[in-house]
């Protein structure tokens, strides 16, 4: 049995150690080897998970989010225009000329804007009945607007 030949033992052990550690160092060093493989695997996993996210964003929930965002921007545009109208009323009133006509026109503007606002809020509440949070914020917004109108009305009466 050639395995029992004692003369070869040291030689086998010596070369085994040498080659095994060289192998270890070459595989586990910086740059390439195991680190390179793990790096590319991590990158691939990350890219794949991102692709999964974009696929998921096409489902109806995110569409509803998008709709909500669009509605809120629309509503804020409406409020901005209302605010500008009332600003204009105030400016005309402060001029002091042709008082009666401006007063009437101001009241007309205000009542018109109120009607508009009521319509908008009605539409919003109709379009997203499930969204109670939005409704409450709209109510708050409405109160703010009413406050502005009240202040404005007092200014014009005086």
């Amino acid at each position: 049995m050639p395995q029992l030949d004692k003369f070869t033992y040291f030689s086998q052990f010596f070369w085994l150690c040498l080659f095994f550690f060289t192998f270890y160092i070459f595989i586990c060093n910086d740059g390439d080897g195991v680190l390179g493989i793990s790096r590319i695997l991590k990158l691939r996993n990350q890219l794949l998970s991102h692709r999964g996210k974009t696929i998921r964003s096409k489902d109806p929930n995110s569409l509803e989010d998008l709709l909500r965002k669009g509605f809120s921007t629309g509503v804020s545009y409406m409020y901005a225009s209302l605010f500008e109208v009332s600003q204009w009323c105030k400016a005309v009133d402060l001029l002091g000329k042709r008082r009666k006509i401006t007063l009437i026109s101001c009241f007309g503007e205000i009542s018109g804007s109120r009607g508009m606002e009521r319509n908008i809020l009605y539409n919003i509440s109709k379009s997203s009945p499930s969204n109670t949070g939005r409704w409450i914020t709209c109510r708050n917004c409405r109160n703010d607007i009413m406050l502005i109108h009240v202040v404005h009305g007092q200014g014009s009466i005086k």
Partner: peptide
Amino acid sequence: FFLLLIHFVTKKGGGNL
């Protein structure tokens, strides 16, 4: 042989995507 394989596979920072 195996080290050559590893070297060619991972030569540019880990190989191809």
